[in-house]
Simulated scan of single mutants.
Amino acid sequence: MTTEPALTGAAAEFEPLRPKLMRVAYRMLGSVADAEDVVQEAFIRWMRTERAEVRQPEAFLRRTVTRLCLDQLKSARHQRETYVGPWLPEPLVEEDEAEDVTLPLMLVLERLSPLERAAFLLHDVFGLQFEEVAVEIERDPAACRQLAARAREHVREARPRFKVERERGLEIAEAFFNASRSGDMKALGAMLSADVTAHADGGGKRPAATEPALGFEAVMTQYATVASWLKDNPSTLIRYGFINGLPGFVTLEVDGELQTTALDIEDGNITAIYVMRNPDKLRHLH
């Protein structure tokens, strides 16, 4: 039976690493709740491990988390295929644009195989050498290089070419909130690029468009309908901030649920709007 001092020692070693492990798990899975479950499972396995034989606890735990995520991604693919409407990752809201993996990039990662996703994140985002990546995902270094290279091809277009400055991004988010809520369609239209898209994730739990709106006219039509609805059902601004690295805002809607809106901005114009309405993906924000 595990003794109390041993449990205390296990927790003392594990807890400082928990934030790093959460970053790996969240970027692999796109779900805060699933990432927390994976990290907790890693902690349980850590408690059962002969820790005196582990020379590098961080590498051991990261490897454990990565492999648990790979297992989870295999079953998650079926869940994505049967998901109602557009799928978006759970929103992380921060004061600053601290996300190294932005929301558009996470959507691209969804289209990769689990191994491509792991190789790219571990090498390109977390800075591991391919020899280390090989140990993590149980492939040889040459295969890991190929996996990361294939992932990079898909990812390249999702990388922002001209990153919006923090203050300017928040100014555009505020202007978008005011225009969309007041029904000022002229002001709203002036912010949008010609090829703007709008994506809303309701997960079948709350009303949301089941297909993305593609192009200026489609987005303007959608937001004219939204503005008409909001006249009698106003939402309350909670805060502005960065949602998965993109400027945006959190609101409390008339149904008592939260909502996040994130804006992808390029050359001063909004190129994509991402709205999270699925209450299951917003619980952690409460």
Rank of each mutant, 00 (worst) to 15 (best):
T260A: 07
N233R: 06
P247S: 05
T236W: 07
V250I: 10
F242Q: 03
L230R: 08
G204C: 10
Y223W: 11
Y223K: 02
R206H: 02
R206A: 05
K205W: 09
A213F: 15
N233K: 04
L252D: 02
L214K: 13
L258S: 00
G256D: 12
V219H: 14
Y240V: 00
T210L: 15
T221Q: 12
E253T: 11
L237P: 06
V254G: 00
M220C: 01
Q259V: 03
T210V: 11
P207L: 10
S228L: 06
T236H: 11
G202K: 14
T261M: 10
S228M: 08
A227F: 05
P247H: 10
G268E: 13
D264T: 04
N269S: 11
Y240E: 01
I270W: 08
G203D: 11
F249Q: 15
I238F: 01
E253M: 08
G203T: 01
Y274Q: 14
L214G: 02
P212G: 06
Q222D: 03
T251E: 15
A218S: 14
L258N: 02
F216A: 09
A272S: 15
A209C: 02
A213P: 05
E217I: 01
V254H: 06
F249T: 01
K205T: 01
A227Q: 01
I270N: 08
E217K: 08
W229I: 00
E266R: 14
V250G: 03
A213V: 01
T260M: 11
L258V: 02
N233P: 07
F216H: 14
G241Y: 07
L252T: 01
A224P: 04
G268K: 11
D264M: 04
A227P: 00
I238K: 09
P207E: 13
F242R: 03
D264W: 04
I270D: 14
A209G: 05
I243Y: 05
G268W: 09
W229Q: 01
R239W: 08
I238P: 06
Y274D: 07
K205H: 13
